[in-house]
Each structure stands twice: as C-alpha cells, then as structure tokens.
Design a protein around this nucleic acid. Sequence first.
DNA 1: CCCCTCCCGAAAATATCTTTCATTACGTGA
DNA 2: TCACGTAATGAAAGATATTTTCGGGAGGGG
Lengths: 305, 305
Amino acid sequence: MKESFAGDAPPAPAALAAKVRTLAPSMTRSMQRVAEAVAADPAGCAALTVTGLAELTGTSEATVVRTARILGYPGYRDLRLALAGLAAQQQSGRAPAVTADIAVDDPLTDVVAKLAYDEQQTLADTAAALDTTQLGAAVTAMASAGRVEIYGMAASGLVAQDLAQKLLRIGRHAYAHSDPHLAVHNAVTLRSGDVAVAITHSGTTGDVIEPLRVAFERGATTIAITGRPGSPVSQYADHILTTSIARESELRPAAMSSRTSQLLVVDCLFVGIAQRTYETAAPALSASYEALAHRHRSAPRGGRQ
Amino acid sequence: MKESFAGDAPPAPAALAAKVRTLAPSMTRSMQRVAEAVAADPAGCAALTVTGLAELTGTSEATVVRTARILGYPGYRDLRLALAGLAAQQQSGRAPAVTADIAVDDPLTDVVAKLAYDEQQTLADTAAALDTTQLGAAVTAMASAGRVEIYGMAASGLVAQDLAQKLLRIGRHAYAHSDPHLAVHNAVTLRSGDVAVAITHSGTTGDVIEPLRVAFERGATTIAITGRPGSPVSQYADHILTTSIARESELRPAAMSSRTSQLLVVDCLFVGIAQRTYETAAPALSASYEALAHRHRSAPRGGRQ
DNA sequence: CCCCTCCCGAAAATATCTTTCATTACGTGA
DNA sequence: TCACGTAATGAAAGATATTTTCGGGAGGGG
C-alpha cells in the first residue's frame, strides 16, 4: 500500500473546487495549502511543474503529489491535465460577454470575438429563416437557365460577383452587373428561360430593381435576394430568398451582416445548382480542387520570422 | 536556431484543429500523421505520453516533439496541456452536430444546414487563430497610412474590394486591384508610410506576390492575409494575418470557407481602423449611412412603400 | 518527561521529455 | 537511368520533471 488514498472516484473532470472542499478535512495542513492554490487558480497552477507548485505553496514536491492523490488522480501529471481542462472550460464559459455592441474603446481581442460571434449569429438566423421551397425553385430555374444575369450594387455587387464567379466555374453562363445603365441594357436582351437575380439588402435599391423589372417584363424568371421580403423589389420577383437582418451599430454597419447572410444564400444556390447539374459540374469542381491540392509544392519550409 | 519554427503564435488554446489544417502543408508526412491523430482525438492523445503517441502514429518521439513545435508550443508537454483543455471544451461544449460532407443527393434542407454550420465553424476557427498582435500592428499601419493599396485575384479580389469599399467610406484612401499589371505599376509608386495588402488563400498567387514584393522594396508597410503563414507571400510581408483553412470537399470548394475567413479578418481590420481614427471616421460613417438611406427612399416606379 | 505516531521535505530513483546525430528516403538535374 | 545533395526520420544520449523512499521532527497521550 502506498500513501493514503481517498475515494475510488475516477479522475474528476470539472467538479474540482467542490472536491477540494469535500476532501479538505481529510487533508493535512500543507496539503490544504496546495489544494487551495489549485482551486483558486487552476489556469495558473496548470502552468507550473511540481516543483513550481511546491515552491508557490511553500511545501515540497512530495506533498503536491500526495494532494493530487487525495483528489483522486494517479499523480500530479494527471491533476495538471485536469487543471488545464478546467481552465479551458471556465475560459470558454466566459464567452457570453461578447453579446454587447462593439465600442470605440474595445480591445482588438474583443472586436474579433464580437464580430465572429455576430456573424455566426447571422448565419444561424439566415439558415433558419431560409425558405427551402423558394430556394429549390430558384435552383431549378438557374440550373436550366440559358443565361443568368445578376444585379447588385456596392456591397451587394460583390456578392453578385461572387455568385457569378462560382457559376462560371461550373459551366453556367452567369454575369454580374454593377453599372445600373448597362444592367438595364443587359436586362432588355433577356427572354423566357433566362434568369435574372437581384441582390439588395433593403429591397429598395432602384438601380437594381429597374433591371429586374425589365427582365420580369421580358418574361425571364426573376429572383430577389433581399432582407425585406415585402419591399418593392419583390414586386418583380418570381422567387424571393430572404436574408436575415441583424442589429447594427455605428461601428458595425448593416453591410457587414447582410453580406454574410447574402453569401450564405448564394452558396446554397451554388451547391444546389452544382448538385442538379452534377454531370457537367463535377469535372470543373475537381479541377479547381486539384489546382489547390497541388499547391503545397515549394513553400519554403519554416517561412521567415 | 534549432529546428524549423512556423509562426510566432503563442500557445493556442482552442484553435487547434484549425491550426493543424493551417500548418499541415508545411509539415512533413510523419508530422502530418501526428497532427492528424491529435486533431482527430484530442482527449485520447492527451492521455498519451510522447512515447505512446509516437507508437500510435508509427513515428518517433522526436517527430512528435517537432510537430508540437510546429503547432506553436514549446514542447510536447505544453501541447498535451492544450489538448486536455481542448478535450474539456468540446466535452462540455456543443454537440458534434452535422459534421458530414455535403453529398450530391443531399436535400436542400441539409445543404443549408451544413453550409451554415461549416461557415460558423470557419468563423470560430479564424477568430481563435487570429493573432491580435499582428492585427494590431496592421491596424496601426493602415490607420496612419498615406495610401492603402490592396491586391487580390479572383475570389480574394472580391474580399480586396470589400475592404477597399469599407475603408473609403471612413475616409481612408484605399483601392483594390485585380489587374496584375496595373497592380505592379501601382505598387511602384508606393513609398514609406504607405501600406500594401496582399490577399491570397494559398499564399502562392504570383500575381499578388509580385506587387507586394515591389511595395516591400519601395519601403511601404506590407500586410499579407493568407491561409498559409509559411508560404512565399510571407517573404515580403511585414505583418501576416492568418485565415483558417477548412476541410474542403468536392461540393464545397476551398474558396468558400477561405472567403468567409478572409472577410472576417477584413472586418476586424475595418473596425480596428475605425476605432483608431474615430474622430474622422464617425462623421463619414453616419454620412454614408444617411446618404444611402436617402438613395433608398423610393423605388423608381410604382413601388408601393 | 518520554515515547509513539504521523506529517513533512530532501534526495534518490524513475519516468518523461528533449536534443543530437547518423541513417535513410526523396527529389533533382545531368 | 544514375549520381548527388538535401531534407526527413528514428535511435539513443542527455536533460527535466515526477514519483518514491527515507529519516528528521512536531504534536499529543501516557
């Protein structure tokens, strides 16, 4: 038999503070000091070696190991691992603090966390709110369309280009337009069987509504991607894909989350179309896949710095 | 200097899976085996000693230690600690959710869910892995820069434009370039105090590296936004912002998640700069806010509110 | 006051981690 | 195809960290 041995409990995961309190009475003075230190600052202690912790608590290595045993671990090494886990947990538990708006004096760490959190939220909202029936209809129309013309201005214009780039890569004839006049001229040439897509967060961007109206009247299938399903743009849309509207603030303009939301919708369209046209899309897809896979040829090892 | 050393990132806490993907290309085969094992089963690996993990992966202790170094830890001991933390986190954290790849015959409902989940994951990874020191340095440089020139091709080109649009709105002189030749001509005119930003997922896009190199040699401050910190582009970058590399599949090309990741980084840059230059940025922000509101006032024809 | 018990830490013993170095595998260019 | 140089790899030596052993000493009861 070795030293004293308390409870056959398996290496406890999280309930460490409680365990310390429970077992404190059966500990000697020096052990209590160690247990206390460990309970008070798991993260800090996890960074210490046996010797370090012994010094910190003014005890010896042996005592530290004994304490670890009392707490139910085979040795200090395992206690330390558990400590690291605990630290990580209460670290991540502190996350909800990011729900606030971004302030002018927020440190960059907070900015990153808040932005990421907000965009994640936007994605979840968008996915939840997206009408798959409408999406399916849009996919069907675009998968069999002769031409696909996409209209979007400013931030939405980038989304439009993103969609066009993707569709071109799988062999669809898709083009994005950011010039209002050219967009209208382009829309005039559409006919039944073609598809026109308008992307506008507010649903009121005249420069985008106009070409969609023209396309609509020319008999093309029209699709609107907007955050406001009841807005003017929907008047001329056969199918409406709704993006989410997130709360915005001075430092976080609406453009940011609407873009995230629009891009998710666009990705869904893309994947849906790629599925429908898999026969022709597959070669193009694997080509771009390999192009990237073969990249890690001559990256100088270690990089500089 | 001992063995190769990638990225000066401090011991990462949670962003391990992401880090593995990011750094995998700069690893040798055996290291990749180790990294893979670690990413696949953090909890299991945390329970193993160097020797154990070496045996499990069919490699040697030395290789395990080398891998730990590449991942940014001083040695295996610390990697193990981080692993324990990670295990605890995902233990208490969220459920595995939809982890499967997107299949050709997935219904649209699944496609939406999977895409949203994947992009959320990408955001979390990016945020966790983003080096705020580098970010801070980049923000400082850009906030006080005379001119900001941004280089990006194809999908990254859209991100470049997004950044340029945002910066212009808060009164920075920022422009995005997608034409390789014009980009180089533009870079030649840069000088100390100006900033050049290169955006490339692979870090090997010559058309983007070239203008950055020119800018670097002209004495401008150079920033690289890339998924491969050790890649050629970092050679000419004063500051490197790392985007995450998500697992990809045929129906979900790398471009998709890299774009999400890049946009988050770009947003962080934007907010950081807006904070630093709040005095001048604030009026610009509200001005453009109102200007847009005005433009959206009415639909051109027959829009009923 | 002495002895007995048990706590405690120094140091030895062991396990674990790190470094070194010779070997082997690989890619490159002739 | 072969020879060469470079880079990757694992065995083993070397350094640290952990565990065990063991004896000194404090407290308490007889």
